[in-house]
């Protein structure tokens, strides 16, 4: 399996699974306007997953397309971070998960725009526009909820406490990254992390939120080792393809 394939799968699966989570909100948002906004984010993520997984299929060259990759792998073959598969919880938890993710994705796509891989840089350029908007939206909400009412402050601090342990995996690297780094396809993740830390610190400061002191880490998704949530997600995501194999829809 090529390093490039593995890397694109990681990006694509983050979009796919977070898009899935976001789409669960459609029809259930806290207010109509926000329902529409969250569905827009879900749509962007599903669109990114489509471009990325189709491209991963091309790189692999075994005749699998985006749909085959999205719907017909085993759980261990999905490489999204644990963060994006976490349940939606209340609106604040969804927003916090989105914010931690957007603050990482924006600098990541910025760097990937200059990738030596032309296709990847094109996807990054398009996705960056969307991600900037997602980050603006999620950061504003973190601030509103953090500095809103006593109840909202408590709730979103709680969400941060719960999700914080999954944030380090966003910066996970292994031999896949080392190889692509040497080929100029990606840049050092440390630069992305540095930017993420600044964004997170500034937004939490404005939101009057405290970064948890418990730095216990939960990782595994990038290697295919997921939380209990993943099986339930796949049961829905793959339902049609598994129940009615080999059909056109």
């Amino acid at each position: 399996m090529s390093a490039l394939f593995e890397y694109i799968i990681r990006l694509g699966d983050d979009s796919l699974i977070l898009g899935h989570r976001m789409s669960e909100w459609c029809g259930h948002g806290p207010i109509l306007e926000e329902d529409i906004a969250m569905t827009n984010i879900a749509l962007d993520l599903v669109g990114q997953a489509t471009s990325l997984l189709n491209y991963a299929g091309d790189v692999e060259g075994n005749g699998r397309d985006g749909d085959k990759l999205a719907f017909l792998r085993y759980d261990r073959e999905y490489k999204n971070t644990l963060l994006v598969e976490q349940p939606n919880g209340d609106f604040g938890t969804t927003i916090m998960r989105q914010f931690l993710f957007d603050a990482y994705r924006k600098p990541l796509f910025e760097k990937l725009q200059n990738s030596a891989d032309k296709q990847l840089s094109a996807i990054a350029e398009k996705s960056l526009k969307e991600t900037k908007y997602h980050l603006k939206h999620s950061a504003e909400w973190v601030i509103r909820l953090g500095d809103g009412t006593e109840e909202s402050h408590q709730r979103i601090q709680e969400s941060l406490n719960t999700l914080w342990r999954y944030s380090s995996e966003l910066f996970y690297t292994d031999e896949v990254d080392a190889e692509l780094l040497s080929q100029g396809i990606i840049t050092d993740i440390a630069e992305v992390r540095a930017e993420w830390e600044v964004t997170v610190k500034n937004v939490f400061e404005e939101a009057t939120l405290h970064i948890p002191t418990n730095n216990w880490k939960q990782e595994g998704g990038r290697k295919g080792m997921h939380s209990e949530n993943m099986g339930f997600i796949l049961a829905e995501l793959q339902y049609m393809q598994r129940a009615y194999p080999n059909m056109e829809w």
């Binding site: 306007e33 529409i36 906004a37 603006k136 504003e140």
Partner: peptide, 12 residues
């Protein structure tokens, strides 16, 4: 929020 909602509601 009004501008962002305006974008999402009226410029899809």
């Amino acid at each position: 929020m009004a501008v962002e909602n305006g974008r999402d509601v009226y410029t899809r």
